[in-house]
Structures are given as C-alpha cells and as structure tokens.
C-alpha cells in the first residue's frame, strides 16, 4: 500500500513562507495498491494528484470523511470529474435529512460554484455510507461515524500489505472526563485498533483546546493517547492548525518527544511525502 499525503493542513489552505515545510493544502490522501487508487478527502491537496503514472483500474474512488469545506473544496478542480472517459465514485457519510448528492450539490452550484452537479460529465456514482464495510478493488474498507460536528466518518483501509486508518477530523476527548481509556467507549477506536498506520487529527495544542472544546478537533497529546489506547503501530499527526507555523510545529513535536514515552513512532505529517515511512518530519522513534 503506497500512501501519499497531498494535504495535511486543517481548516483552510495556508500558504506562506512559514508553512512551506509542512505544507498548506487541506486534507487529501492518495492510497494506491496494485494499480488502483483511493483518494481520501478532496481538500485543496487534490490538485496535486498525478494520474499519469498509475491506475490500471478504470475507476477512481473519492472517499469523503465529511462535507466541511476544507475536505471538499478541491472537487471543483478534480479533473476526472470533467472527463467523460472517467468513472468516479464519491463516497460520503449518510444522514437522514438530505442525500449526499443533495448536500454536495450545495457546493456544486452558484454562488459557490459556476457550474452544477449535473455538469460533471464523468460517469459519476455517489455512495452513502455510515458504519459500513465495503470492497473497492484490492481495498477492504470499514467506515464508522466519529465525533465531529455534522455527519463525519473515519476510514480503515485494509489490503494484503497492511492496515491504514484515516481520521482527520475527530474529537474523541469531548466530554467531562476527556479521553475514555475503555476502547468500547472511545469514538473511532474500532477503526484505529491495531492499525499499522494511523493518520489522525492533531490540530490543537492543549492551550488552544481550552477555548476550542466542541469544535471537533483533537489536541496533539490526546491524539498520541488515542493511538496508545488503540494500540496502533505508527502515528502521523495531521490537520495542522492554519495558525501553526513550521517552527511552532517543530517546537510542539520536540515537546511531545520530550514529555512522552510511547512505544510507537510518531511524526508530524508533511505534505508531499509518503505515509509508508518518512511521511513526517522529523523522524519519530
């Protein structure tokens, strides 16, 4: 399983000299196995996807965790949607009130977009998922609702080469007692349990979180604890806060390394790198 991180920034694309190292594009992860591709989320990072050097499969699957703008804003620039020879499948969380197509249609319509959903000329299929299991080519995928404002899922992707869990927006510590260490009572634990690699929300410092409880995100410390409780083998911290510069993320990482002693390696996710090792900076151990 080859994993490429095309966007690891949270909330809003953030491009300036101080975010050059970790990157400014919002969530988008490419997962490739046996010439087949999954695209996890369609943040601005999706514009960096290169379709020329892969894809034996005629279809592309885009798995959305939720429909907050930083996770779908790249769809308007996703070339396969405008190519009649392409088969694109969009997967996203089900909710009772409106269909996924209707909710995506709000984005694919004026004034947010110059065109409508019906103008997408690829062969498009929309799939609604919740606490689901399904197969796409070589991938076995488990999705589950996780704690985040609005319907939101995380994904557990399994292939013959390993298990990768992706929960970019998640607030498992919401509540009076913080993170529950009984994994039955821990949102997202079923997805992350014993995964080879977990890519998880770590937007906030503990100081940030004091005034941002309920906003749907995790502190770096809680992300580490979540990974520990769920026994993951390696952790990449992502959804970097747009106000956090490279220097601040480096300092946060140094502090985390100093004050924790987890048995698994962890790193800060870096845009443009792979997730199979060296997907972050600096190297964890």
């Amino acid at each position: 399983m080859k994993i490429t991180l095309w966007g690891v920034r949270g909330s809003i694309p953030t491009f300036n000299p101080s975010t050059r190292v970790y990157g400014g594009n919002t969530s988008c992860i490419e997962v490739e196995e046996d010439g087949c591709m999954l695209v996890l989320d369609a943040g601005s990072g999706i514009t960096n996807l290169n379709f020329s050097n892969n894809l034996d499969c005629p279809r592309i699957d885009v798995l959305l965790t939720h429909l907050h703008i930083d996770h779908i804003q790249g769809l308007s620039f996703f070339k396969p949607l405008f190519d009649p020879t392409k088969e694109v499948h969009i997967w996203g969380p089900h909710t009772h009130a409106h269909s996924l197509r209707t909710r995506l249609g709000r984005y694919f319509s004026p004034p947010l977009s110059p065109f409508y959903f019906r103008d997408l000329i690829c062969h498009l299929e929309v799939h609604e998922i919740g606490n689901s299991s399904f197969n796409i080519g070589p991938f076995t995928i488990q999705s589950a609702y996780v704690i985040h404002p609005g319907p939101t899922v995380g994904y557990r992707v399994t292939t013959r080469s390993g298990v990768f869990t992706y929960i970019p927006d998640h607030e498992p510590a919401l509540g009076r007692g913080g993170l529950n260490h009984d994994i039955r009572w821990l949102s997202g634990s079923e997805l992350a349990y014993e995964a080879d690699l977990l890519l998880h929300d770590a937007q906030y410092t503990e100081e940030d979180y004091i005034v941002k409880k309920g906003w749907g995100h995790t502190t770096m410390e809680d992300a580490l604890e979540f990974a520990s409780v769920t026994k993951v083998k390696r952790l990449l911290l992502m959804h970097h806060d747009p106000t956090h510069s490279d220097a601040q993320l480096d300092a946060c990482y140094a502090q985390l390394k100093e004050k924790t002693a987890y048995p698994f390696p962890f790193e800060m996710a870096v845009e443009g790198t792979g997730g199979g090792g060296g997907g972050g900076r600096p190297s964890g151990g």
Partner: peptide, 10 residues
C-alpha cells in the same frame, strides 16, 4: 480485514 474490536456507536 477488519478490526475485531467492537466499540459502541458514537
């Protein structure tokens, strides 16, 4: 293929 651990629904 899937996690054997069962968590309660959110």
């Amino acid at each position: 293929q899937n996690s054997k651990h069962i968590a309660y629904p959110i």
